[in-house]
Simulated assay, not measured.
Amino acid sequence: MRPKVSFVVLNWNNFKDTKEIVQCLERLDYPNFDIVIVDNDSRDGSARMLEDCFPEHPFIRSPVNSGYSGGNNLGIEYALRMKADYVAIVNNDIVIDNDKLLAEVIAYMEDSGAEILGPKIERLETRETVSVYNDSPWWNLVRKVMVKNRRTREDDAQEEYNSLLLLGAFLVIKSEVFGTIGKMNEDFFMYCEENELLLRANLHRVAISYYPQVKVLRKMGKDERNYHIRRLYYMSRNKIHMFKLHSSGWSLLFLLFINFVSDVKKIVRFLFEGKFAFAATIVKGVIDGTGHVTGINPRYH
């Protein structure tokens, strides 16, 4: 019997994309998987439409909008109760055009010992690769400082470790990993939660692999290419939460400083462009991050 895989697909007011990714997953050529659909308190009728469209799949309704982290945690908990060997967290804006993808991923993970895997992810519109945060000099520096800081305090700074920060839009995670590092941190609500999860995995020496031999596509339209209010707020706030969780002392001060410089540059640019609401949103995110405001902010929903 091949290992059992549970896909977790989160819906929030988006019947079209959620339906399309579930249909993509249904076409996968693999003998032992299920698809867990979690609705995050949608108000547009999409939950009922999805239940009617896919009665054969487990369906979980969250009584509140618990964000990307909380919604996925509901699906992860269900998958673990159902004894899944692997949990695959998949955004509903992902497109899969390779029916053998899951078979190839699980074969690689079983052979290599990888415990968390991310495939190559390309923008659907441009085919630009957007798979790993390590490709960003800013994120690469942040990751190195946070991981080294925590490892040094454990007198373990010299040990070899895998320190990839993968994009959270498609992650396959061995079920035992959740028992070691826990699930997604619901304080983040949305944005940066996968970075924080992978940082915890780094600290526990979980084997993380980027596997570009398989590829998925991601719909990243205009709202994703440009800054928008909700993303600006949660990114500005949650980066500070992440720094405080995974660094201290001079490392924390250094991270807060380079983050401050980055945010000031964005604020100045938005002011020159006349995007005053964008600039104000970054300021609000920084204030809330510094003050440890967590969870949902209804103002941005």
Rank of each mutant, 00 (worst) to 15 (best):
S66T: 05
L167C: 04
A114Y: 14
A157Y: 01
V87G: 04
N72W: 04
W139L: 15
N149R: 09
V172P: 00
E128C: 14
P63V: 03
N140T: 15
K148F: 08
Y68D: 07
S69E: 15
E159P: 12
K144Y: 13
V64Q: 14
N65D: 10
R43E: 12
S112D: 06
S163K: 01
L167H: 05
G113D: 02
L102K: 01
R143C: 09
V142A: 12
E160F: 09
S46D: 08
N91C: 09
P63T: 15
D39W: 03
I116R: 02
V147N: 00
I94F: 12
G45N: 06
C53T: 04
A114E: 14
I76D: 02
D155F: 06
E110I: 13
P55K: 04
A47T: 07
S62P: 12
L117M: 03
N91H: 14
I35M: 07
R143P: 04
G45Y: 13
N134L: 11
D52T: 04
E51T: 00
L101P: 03
I35R: 01
I96C: 10
K83E: 11
E56H: 02
P137K: 08
L164C: 14
D52L: 08
P58H: 02
N40W: 07
N98F: 14
T152R: 13
E159I: 08
R48Y: 06
F33C: 12
L141R: 10
D39E: 15
I60Y: 05
T152H: 04
D44K: 07
A107C: 08
V105H: 05
